[in-house]
């Protein structure tokens, strides 16, 4: 099996994850895109582990670690989403514009 097959699949999954993160309006669906990206990374790690025949199994071990971190991330992310839902009443990413710079500056034109 050519090595680039799993690598290309990994890239594909990552790109799809990016698309999901960029385009979804519901925060939970955005988090699903993030999960896809993390899985693509795992696939990459495991493929290289098999290719290098790593005695220390560094690729597989790091895949495990990434899974753990992903679990922690999804726990925190969902906690934030619930908090947002409680304060805003919905979790539409498009309507959360508190970061916008829409105040006119204090200095007036001369």
């Amino acid at each position: 099996m050519p090595l680039w097959w799993p690598l290309l699949l990994s890239s594909l999954l990552f790109a799809i994850g990016v698309y999901g993160v960029l385009v979804r309006r519901n925060a939970v669906l955005v988090l699903m895109g993030v999960e896809l990206m993390l899985n693509a990374v795992n696939l990459n790690l495991v493929a290289f582990d098999a290719y290098f025949r790593d005695v220390l199994h560094g690729g597989q071990t790091f895949a495990l670690f990434v899974i753990v971190i992903a679990a922690a991330e999804i726990g925190l992310g969902l906690a934030i989403v619930l908090l947002v839902f409680r304060t805003h009443g919905q979790i539409d990413v498009d309507t959360m514009r508190e970061l916008a710079d829409r105040e006119e500056p204090a200095v007036a034109e001369r």
Partner: peptide, 30 residues
């Protein structure tokens, strides 16, 4: 005055990017 006006205009243009949309920011980051 031109320097001030230039900074002002540039600020107006740059402010368009600061629309508060996190996904828009992310797109630029990617």
């Amino acid at each position: 005055d031109g320097a001030a006006a230039g900074a002002w205009g540039l600020g107006r243009v740059l402010r368009l990017a600061q629309n508060g949309n996190v996904q828009g920011y992310l797109m630029v980051v990617v």
